[in-house]
Nucleic acid binder design. Structure first.
Lengths: 238, 238
DNA sequence: ATTGCAAACCTGTACGACAGGTTAGGGATA
DNA sequence: TATCCCTAACCTGTCGTACAGGTTTGCAAT
């Protein structure tokens, strides 16, 4: 690691150096989630920079969810949070650097895998919760808003059941975008049979995961996404 | 919109509010990459907060690579940068919330797909560059450091050739971690034939992509990762 | 119309101040 | 002695001001 801040790296500014120093501190002290970081004043003195600089460095790390800030309390090392990447993706979509179809292609790729892994690694409790969301979706037939929330929770729960936090991270990254496009997809399924079919896929998928059948789970997830993309294209989503 | 915040959202602090105001500004004005944002002083006046707060908000967005800061110049909306997510993953690994094997499982999932997409969508120029990196790896047989750089560039170039920026984003996120584990994987291939085989896979993969054969490209990428994971496990990587 | 320079503007950093939340220690009480 | 409460010390959040550079703009001279 070349990050020992010699002078030549100063071009990036004192804040960047301080960010590096803080992450180095976390590494060197082998801090884990929940552990406390030094106070702003302490770092300020130690690195010979103003508290302003330390604060901006802390803010930067907090924006990335690497640390957590609380008024009065010291900053702490943060747990991985699946919401960390959401702003990034949303920004990409808003600025038209990412299209909705591209989001769905990535989701399909990732979630076909999470479905398989979840079948193999889910706890009984997780299998129950996943099925619960699938059932709840059917119960919310007349309140799409709520149905969407269960759908989102359904997918996220599967990602968590895959027992690989990176999958939860990525699926979570798309949550914001999903929330914006979901209603369009739902409305485009004008035929009630299409709507029922979509709900049926969710239930079948939940059952496949509960039954520990990775092949069936993968296939159903793939089917689900193919069907969703078709619905979105039919609705004219670019 | 001037977004006069009512009190109920104040709990998150003025900086968070300001971040929201800035992202809202980007959305409302439909700003794209390169477009300039208002000066700190202007936002400060408009939102009735100190410049300190605006600065911390700008810093937060810069940490996420949503905007770019330059001394003297105004802040600009940033282009999606594949390096944005790297700190997040590295933090997860350092704090032992993510294991190397989990990283490789995600990479395998993603890159099997990028290989297929790249076969279908790469430009001739990209096919050339990809093959170039594969060949360069062989030329660097005695300088693993350089070989690693070509390997990383090879994978990233394939992701770019997939013509979906999210894939490049995700592959880029693992760059830092890869740089830390790659040497271990290479050294664990003690048999020279294993080393040659690894290089051969890269070359075959490059050719498959150049030939526009998505199935073969996918299979080779899968093979590559299975082989890499085996090497890492043999080296005792957890 | 072009060029060049100076003023206006902008960001980066520092310092000081104070409000309000949090923590730790010490003293009073039982 | 053990417990409880209160205060003092500490910490973060926000504000204001100041000033050193870097950047842009517009005017002025050519």
């Amino acid at each position: 690691m070349s990050t020992l801040q010699s002078k030549e790296k100063a071009s990036a500014g004192r804040v960047s150096e301080t960010v590096s120093a803080i992450t180095a501190h976390i590494r060197n002290e082998e801090l884990g989630p929940g552990d406390k970081l030094p106070s702003e004043a302490l770092f300020s003195k130690e690195l010979n920079v103003s508290r302003t600089v330390v604060r901006e460095a802390y803010r930067s790390l907090a924006a990335l969810h690497l640390i957590e800030l609380n008024t009065g309390k010291r900053a702490t090392v943060a747990q991985l949070d699946y919401a960390s990447m959401s702003p990034l993706i949303e920004h990409g979509v808003h600025t038209e650097q990412i299209s909705i179809q591209q989001v769905y292609d990535v989701r399909r790729t990732i979630e076909v895998r999470t479905a398989a892994l979840a079948s193999l690694r889910r706890t009984d409790e997780q299998a129950r919760v996943i099925l619960e969301h699938a059932v709840a979706m059917e119960d919310c037939f007349d309140t799409p808003e709520q149905m969407m929330e269960h759908d989102i929770a359904f997918h996220l729960e599967i990602a968590k059941a895959a027992k690989n936090p990176i999958y939860a991270l990525i699926v979570g990254a798309f949550e914001g975008v999903t929330r914006q496009t979901w209603p369009t997809g739902w409305r485009s399924r004008t035929d009630i049979n299409e709507q029922k079919k979509m709900l049926q896929i969710h239930r079948d998928l939940a059952n496949a995961i509960a039954a520990g059948d990775p092949t069936k789970a993968s296939d159903l997830m793939a089917l689900h996404f193919d069907e969703s993309v078709r619905a979105l294209i039919a609705a004219g989503i670019s």
